[in-house]
Computed example of a mutant assay.
Amino acid sequence: MSDVAEASSRFALPFLVVAQAGKEQTHNEAVALIDMLLQPQALAVRGAPPPNPRGGESWIVAPGATGAWSGRDGAIAGWTDGGWRFAEVPVGFEMTVGGLNFIRKTEGWAGPGQVVPPEGGAIVDAEARAAILQLIELFRDRGVVAP
């Protein structure tokens, strides 16, 4: 067994190896995955492949996925000329899904949270502080503000 890695550590992009036949296939596979992961955008979070995907389209695979996505929970699924490509991304990976920011957490993908606007109350300052604390907590959860 060789001590040379066959894939990159973060995204498992395939490496070319010495005396490998069909290097273009390995190279093309890596380029397809890079294309899917560079400034990543997904159309939605889905539990099954769409009926008519187009080249370059991607989705986040929802838990309990079926069909060609079975067993790929949490992965990014991208459609290419060669069929489905899947990328398992590390915790902290961010991507846009339908115009909203999502982040890969240990327990799965997290989309943007909602902040409840303050209502009522006799002391406006307390409401403002509560709203600000909610925003700070939301930013912490998304990794925008340090804990």
Score class of each variant (00 low, 15 high):
W79K: 07
W79F: 14
E94P: 08
G67W: 08
W69Y: 15
G92H: 02
N101M: 15
A87Q: 04
G71A: 07
G98H: 06
G71F: 05
V89D: 02
R72T: 10
G92S: 04
M95Y: 12
V97I: 09
S70H: 09
G83Q: 08
R72Q: 14
T96P: 09
M95Q: 07
R72G: 05
D81R: 15
T96R: 12
F86E: 04
P90G: 05
A75G: 07
G92C: 04
G99H: 07
P90I: 05
W79D: 09
F102W: 04
K105W: 01
A75L: 09
A65L: 14
V97Y: 02
G99Q: 11
G71S: 11
E94A: 14
P90T: 04
S70M: 12
T106C: 06
G67R: 13
I76N: 00
T66D: 14
G82V: 13
W69R: 06
D81C: 14
G98K: 06
R104Y: 00
R72A: 11
E88T: 12
I103T: 01
A75N: 10
G74S: 05
G74C: 04
G64E: 11
D73G: 06
W84C: 01
G83N: 10
G108T: 01
G78K: 03
L100M: 13
A87Y: 02
F93S: 00
G78A: 10
I76H: 01
G108N: 06
T80W: 02
E88M: 14
G64A: 09
T96I: 15
A87R: 01
I76W: 00
T80I: 09
G71I: 09
G71C: 11
F86K: 07
V97P: 00
K105T: 03
E88N: 10
M95R: 04
A87T: 03
F86G: 02
G83C: 07
V97Q: 01
R104G: 01
I76G: 00
E94Q: 12
S70N: 11
T96A: 13
D73P: 06
F93V: 03
W69I: 10
D73F: 08
V97S: 06
R85S: 11
I76Q: 03
G78W: 01
G92Y: 02
W69L: 12
M95T: 09
G108I: 05
G74V: 06
P90V: 03
E94C: 15
S70F: 13
F93P: 00
S70D: 10
K105Y: 01
G82W: 12
W84D: 05
A75V: 13
R104S: 01
G99P: 08
G71Y: 06
E107W: 07
N101G: 14
M95K: 07
G83V: 14
M95F: 09
T80D: 12
W84E: 05
D81A: 15
V89G: 02
A77D: 05
A65R: 04
F93Y: 02
G98E: 07
A68Q: 11
N101R: 13
V91G: 06
D81H: 15
G98F: 10
A75F: 12
A75P: 11
V97A: 08
A87C: 11
E88F: 14
R85H: 13
M95C: 11
G74I: 04
A65I: 10
G82Y: 12
